[in-house]
Amino acid sequence: MKKTLVLFISFAFLFNSNAQKVISLYEGKAKGSENWTWQEATSEKNIFNTKVVYNVASPTITAYIPENPNGTSVIVAPGGAFHTLSIDNEGTDVAKWLNAKGVTAFVLKYRVVHSLTDDPVKELMPKMGNFKALDEENATVVPLATQDGLTAVKYVRDHAKEFNLDPKKIGFMGFSAGGTLTMSVVYSAEDSNRPNFVAPIYAYENAIIGNNMPKEKTPIFIAVASDDQLGFMPHSINIYRKWFDAKQPAELHIYEKGGHGFGMRKTGISTDGWIDSFGNWLKMQGYLK
């Protein structure tokens, strides 16, 4: 009896401390990648000393559930040039911050290009100097990742009641390739799978799919650094301008320094505060109390 009680208390503690639930987005093989035979893997031995996920063939969302959900939810798409997913810095760390604000987070593992070694970052780095070639390699995967994002939004909306969520307060945010995915989702969506607000962080505009600006009010929050090594700062300005011209609520933060991929990493400069600015923006839009 005592052992059962201890197990129950331990489970209850886990449930109330960033409780996690991994959810498959599809039954069986995902359409478009039925012949993929490789297995998802994780690597921490890379030049950035950060945890990355690669060879995603079975897309999932991992639900991070706060102790007291406020009804708002955000799907978080890590970046990695559609080859890897920076799962902590641009995924789980973001989810935990959102949880502290009462926001339910869903970290998305979307389909990416097949890596041939156990060091996917080392494989990727030489490709970053030729975006034309990289875009060509990614061309077959970006639509699949976009479908994963759209499916994730629909799943959260369809199951909003189960998670104590408001189906009209579902956001989608992403970093780098995840920002590209964010914009592809909102531009390609229908009513059932369109997010209510979006936040592309240092997005890459050239690979975005679709161009259908939402007719419904869809606030956007954008952040990027001027010294982005990949030159993505103008991409964020272009996205902002399109949103502004469409008379959609839009906010753009451009930091003097921070480089590419700052995410939740703390470096003692102004980009450290972008997430707090995002929180203030969520509050202004009525998604936080």
Results as ranks from 00 to 15, higher is better:
M1L: 12
L5S: 07
L7Y: 13
S10E: 06
S10H: 08
S10M: 14
F13N: 07
F15P: 00
N16L: 14
A19G: 15
Q20L: 08
V22L: 07
I23G: 02
S24P: 03
L25Y: 00
L25E: 00
L25I: 00
Y26Q: 02
Y26I: 00
S33A: 09
N35I: 06
T50L: 14
K51S: 12
V52C: 07
A57E: 13
S58I: 08
T60L: 01
I61G: 06
T62Y: 02
A63W: 02
I65C: 03
S73W: 10
I75D: 04
A77W: 06
G79F: 07
G80D: 01
A81D: 05
F82P: 07
L85G: 07
L85Q: 12
E90Y: 05
D93S: 12
V94R: 11
V94Q: 06
L98V: 05
A105D: 03
Y110N: 01
Y110Q: 04
R111P: 00
H114F: 10
S115G: 06
L116R: 05
T117P: 01
T117Q: 01
E123F: 04
P126N: 11
K127W: 04
G129S: 13
F131H: 11
K132G: 10
D135C: 04
E137Y: 02
V142K: 12
V142E: 03
T146D: 10
G149F: 01
L150V: 07
T151N: 01
A152N: 04
V153N: 02
H159S: 09
H159W: 05
A160C: 05
D166G: 08
K168L: 09
K168W: 02
K169V: 04
K169M: 13
G171Y: 04
G174F: 01
F175K: 12
S176I: 00
G178P: 05
A189L: 04
S192Q: 13
F197C: 07
A199V: 12
A199M: 14
I201L: 11
Y204K: 15
Y204S: 14
I208C: 08
I209T: 10
M213Q: 15
T218A: 09
T218Y: 10
T218F: 10
I220E: 07
I220G: 10
A223S: 15
S226Q: 15
S226L: 13
D227C: 06
L230N: 08
P234Q: 04
H235K: 01
K242V: 03
W243F: 13
F244E: 14
F244W: 08
A246K: 14
K247Y: 13
Q248I: 04
A250W: 11
I254Y: 00
I254E: 10
E256C: 02
E256A: 14
E256S: 13
G261Y: 06
T267N: 15
I269G: 02
T271F: 02
D276P: 01
F278V: 05
G279R: 14
L282H: 03
L282T: 02
Y287N: 09
